[in-house]
Design a protein around this nucleic acid. Structure first.
Lengths: 247, 247
DNA sequence: AAGTGGTCTAGACCACTGC
DNA sequence: CAGTGGTCTAGACCACTTT
């Protein structure tokens, strides 16, 4: 039952706490603990794996730093939900320019929602074949002041088997992925560019044609390292900006 | 000599390791240890402050996570330099689009360099008065393929007393701040927008007039929490993009 | 009161660096 | 070889949450 024989530990590449961390991640991937559910206590994990509680703590500290679990004193350790660490700042960096009025979380209007075969680029991105399908969503996000951004969202059908033309994506899609498919978004990579808005998008955003827009090309990675979502957004840049803090 | 009486620890708001961390940061701010210099060993700090070595380790782990120190097994603990954690990715997120040819670190050509009184916005930003001065640098950064970005860089004279019209800023200004003024840039906040390039900037960047440019408004914070540099960059967005990874 | 995570001390041993 | 940071165990006590 021990995670590894301690005698062989010296031969292993990774320190013990890192192997504990990995074994916990594996069990999250397998779905043993879904987002929002609690993990066993430090002592329980330590006993199960045959290591000291302090070593388990270090593994859990690592997971906390990675944002994969949330620990609450007196309550327990929980698989992080997309809600935790305030999605608004974790994955949503767009902010109104000033007059910091809270305009609330943006609402989404879906413009289209179709299943189609994966393009070569999508095949490469998602690691799927030409016979596989992807779902493409096109939506317009607005807050009380009006339209903010236009967005195309693409996911591989394989990982979201029972989608249909009627599937309603909620505002917080990452929580939706977690709750319904056990998919934990562990990392997001974004590329930002300034582009000239097409006539169609400018119309949707209620801007003059050829306005400069902030384009965000985002890939969301699941715990297993594979891309589960590709998203291209074009955002008004007159009233909004993208915030980033580097430490 | 002890950091705090342990008896009074219960009354303190912060845990011991956090107070150790803060006292170490204070000494970095005071200039006792400058960027690149080494701190005392864990045991030495522990003895000096009258705490256990494990507590000092936790404080140093925190500082490592914050990027303020770098630890090297067998050698010691060093105040982080701007070079550490590879400046290219820490504070320089601009990358060529594809054909990932390494085009090298961009070179800078200075277009102007003047001292002038602080505008109201600059007074607020830097916390200085209307009688204080700022230095404004305007530069064009290029790599082997040509111009990449135009940039205006503003620093308060107070913190950089012996600047002159002849001061040559090196490419890596943060290392320069550290080595020459003991200023450790602890945090950088950026706001990104898409803008329409002015005729002058488009000319400098060798782009058609009114091209969409990626504008980056950046404030650099020193260890003491004050802003030490304000920078506005406008970057070509046809060949370059801004990369960001959210975890 | 019992169970959880958070802090702090204690000490052993390992791995790496530089003399 | 001595000195550094890195890992791992061990156990005490505290703070918070739930029952």
């Amino acid at each position: 039952m021990a995670l590894v024989e301690k005698a062989s530990a010296k031969l292993e590449a990774l320190p013990l706490y890192a192997r504990v961390r990995n074994s916990l991640v594996d069990r999250m991937i397998s779905g043993e603990w879904k987002p929002g559910e609690s993990l066993p206590s430090e002592f329980a994990i330590a006993e199960e794996l045959g290591v000291h509680q302090g070593t388990v703590r270090k593994a859990l500290d690592t997971l906390t730093a990675e944002g994969l679990v949330v620990r609450r004193q007196g309550r327990g350790t929980f698989v992080a939900e997309a809600e935790d660490q305030s999605i608004l700042f974790r994955f949503y960096r767009l902010t109104r320019n000033s007059g910091n009025k809270e305009t609330g979380f943006p609402d989404s209007r879906y413009l289209s929602q179709i299943k189609s075969s994966a393009s070569p680029q999508e095949q490469a991105l998602f690691g799927i074949s030409g016979r596989d399908y992807v779902w493409r969503f096109e939506r317009l996000r607005s807050d009380v002041t009006g339209p903010i951004l236009w967005e195309q969202l693409i996911v591989p059908e394989k990982r979201f088997p029972d989608f249909s033309e009627k599937t309603q994506l909620p505002n917080n899609v990452y929580q939706f992925y977690g709750a319904n498919y056990g998919i934990i978004v562990a990392k997001v990579a974004e590329e930002l560019r300034a582009v000239t808005g097409s006539r169609e998008v400018c119309d949707l955003l209620e801007m003059p044609p050829a306005s400069p827009l902030l384009e965000i090309d985002r890939r969301a990675f699941a715990l297993d390292g594979k891309i589960v979502e590709w998203r291209i957004s074009q955002c008004r840049s007159d009233t909004m900006h993208y915030r980033n803090e580097l430490k």
